[in-house]
Structure formats: structure tokens, C-alpha cells
Design a protein around this nucleic acid. Structure first.
Lengths: 187, 187
DNA sequence: GACGAAAGTTAAGCATACTTAACCACGCAG
DNA sequence: CTGCGTGGTTAAGTATGCTTAACTTTCGTC
């Protein structure tokens, strides 16, 4: 029960990951500057300066006052990994789970820097496998679509024919935000 | 490109989610106290007091100085949802992706409060489906295991027979932390 | 009913990641 | 070669979520 505290010991914070991605992307697009990063991320220039100092200290970026901004090799590596993680997750959420693109993108963005490399590899394999022309994968896509539809319009009974025994709708209902009329109790 | 800033606007922070879970769990086990929460989470009692004030302000817990600790209905709901999310994700990472239990637990813990309810529902369905005795699911488990094994000991060539064209090992290699001898460059 | 330990609290301090306001640096126009 | 505007910086302030140290409250024991 100590795992949870490692949240803040992750190699990259959510902010740092997005700074690295922004710098990498802007560099590819021709050139980076404090203003460009600020605009891209929607933060103040002062915030960028301060984060660049922090990234430089960590050996992920190079930046001297009034100088230009570049990533170190390590910074480039982490930027690339984070970008690829986000892409893999977006594809998984969108293509496999069937989420709408906006939610898929958002969920991927939230967790991209938190999922272990080992998991990422397996997400990638699973997504690739389920999207491939492997006959089992094709059959899966068909069956899972039916399964989801049946579940969507499923029975209210405890014995769901789709779920082979226990109907998942019970659990689902509790997962989706139900209560919406109690927000004013926050005073 | 503004999604990333919503990270800190999430309903629950990582810490808050774990406080709610701890309180719920301790309540079920007989009784909650500041000390018990502190011990469970491995934080100081002062930290607990301060977080309880914050949770009370947000309408998720009830706590008066030197009084006992309880969750509001909303707090209970969020605690239950978070716990269930973690369970679903742990099952997915462990049973479907095939991660070792420790990593599965850790990854689930990191992202449980960040994944949208909609995604959680689909994670649940996918896990349930792939673990079911549905014939397609059974075939999937077999095929995906073979696929992973083949990938693990796969070819070095660009044309991988498993991946039906482009070998994923290229991408995998970049995802897994490779460089390990540059850590002292942080000065 | 006083006493001391355990439980709980406040206060002060730290780190992160922002904000605004105000101040510096630099290059180009005249 | 002066001056001004843009880009960039520091400084100070905010919020979160911790820490330790010191203080208060409560309660069981005698």
C-alpha cells in the first residue's frame, strides 16, 4: 500500500512531458522559442522560463538566458517515447475500445507519462493484433461489437445472456457518473 | 492542444482518490481515525488533518476537530468508483495484457482516477469479454499468447511474419528504457 | 479529580507549477 | 548611434500536498 506515493516520483510529470513534446514538435517545425512554447501550451512566458530552468537542471533541455532552446539526447528520447505512448494509447482507446476521438485523445493525454514501458509494449501488441488481418482478430472485432451492442440494450435482470451469468450493467451503472443534482452542496 | 491543462482540473487528484479509498476501507474494517489513515497511506498525521479539511470543504468527507471521520454520500460514491476502476484496470493489465501482478497493480493505481468513466466501462466490457467462455474469446487468448511469444523471440528483419508486414519490435525497442549509463550527467 | 500518554492540531517550511507585474536585452528604424 | 518594441527575464504571490516541530485535547488510570 505504498505504490500510490510513487506518483510524484515518476520520471516525468504531466507538465514536463508536454513541455518536451512541445519543444520537440516546434523544433521539427523550424524553430523553438520561449514565446512559441508559451503559445503552444497556453501558459505564460514566465512559466516557460521557469520550466526550462528545471528541464535544464534535469539534463533534458539546454537553455541559457536569451539563448535558444534545444533538447538533450535524453530529452529527445523521452519526448519521442511520450509521443509514441500517446499515439499507441489514442489508437487503443479509439480503435479497440471504440471511444469517440476526443475522449480517446484526452484519456491518452492524461495517462501517457504514467503507464509503464512494459504496459505500453503490450498495449501496442494488443492493438496491432486486434487490428490485424489475423482471422481471430477479425472474428474478435465482429463479436466484440455485437457484445457491446447487446450490453448497451441489455436486460435488467441479474442473469445476462451476454455476460454468461452476471450482468455487467450493474457495475457499469455505478461507474458512470450518475448523481448530477447535488453539486450545490459544496456551499 | 489545450487538453493537457485539464490534468489539474480533474474531479479527484491522485492523493484525494487514495484518501477516499483509505477512509472507505477503514470504515468498512470497523472505524476510521486520523492515525489510521496516516498509517495506511504512509503520511504524517498533520498531512491527514490538512487533507481532511480539504475533503470536507469539497463536500466529500465530514470531519470536525477531534471528531470522527466519515465520507459523505458523494465521497462514498467516488471512493467506490475509484476502487472499482482500479480493480478493472488491474484485471485488464494482469489478465489481458499479461503484466506481472506488481506492475499491473502499480499501473492501475497511477491512472485509475484519470481515465474517463466511458473508457472504464469499455475496459470492463473488453476484459469481461476476453475472459469469458465466448468461443472467439477463447481463440483470442490462444492466438494472442502465440503472437506475443513470436514477437518476443521475433526476427530482426523489417518484415516480421507475425506483424503482417512491419515488425513492431522496432517501435518496442524505442519504448522500453534503453539508455542507463547517462544518469550522472545530471551533475 | 489530577496526570500522562496517545491522538490530533496548528504553524512554519519546502517543492512544484503556475500567475501577474515589472524590469532587462537586443536588434532594427530612423 | 539613439531609442523603442518585442522577446525574455526576475520577483512576488497563489494553490496543492506534503514535511517536522511544537502545541492542545482527550481519555484511561490511579
Amino acid at each position: 500500500m505504498e505504490t500510490w506515493k510513487r506518483f510524484h516520483e515518476k520520471q516525468l510529470t504531466h507538465s514536463m512531458a508536454h513541455y518536451l513534446q512541445a519543444i520537440a514538435s516546434l523544433t521539427r517545425a523550424g524553430g523553438t522559442s520561449v514565446s512559441a512554447i508559451a503559445e503552444r501550451l497556453g501558459v505564460s512566458k514566465a512559466g516557460v522560463t521557469s520550466m526550462l530552468r528545471s528541464l535544464t537542471t534535469r539534463g533534458l533541455a539546454k537553455h541559457e538566458p536569451y539563448g535558444d532552446v534545444t533538447l538533450t539526447v535524453e530529452g529527445q528520447r523521452l519526448a519521442a517515447r511520450t509521443e509514441r505512448s500517446r499515439d499507441v494509447l489514442t489508437e487503443f482507446f479509439g480503435e479497440i475500445l471504440g471511444l469517440d476521438p476526443a475522449t480517446a485523445e484526452e484519456d491518452a493525454c492524461m495517462i501517457e507519462h504514467l503507464v509503464s514501458p512494459d504496459s505500453m509494449v503490450r498495449f501496442l501488441r494488443l492493438t496491432a493484433f486486434l487490428r490485424s488481418d489475423h482471422p481471430t482478430a477479425e472474428r474478435f472485432r465482429e463479436a466484440f461489437r455485437e457484445y457491446q451492442n447487446a450490453c448497451e440494450s441489455g436486460t435488467e435482470s441479474a442473469h445476462c445472456p451476454v455476460c454468461h451469468g452476471r450482468c455487467l450493467r450493474v457495475a457499469l451503472e455505478e461507474l458512470i457518473d450518475p448523481v448530477e443534482g447535488e453539486k450545490e452542496s459544496l456551499s
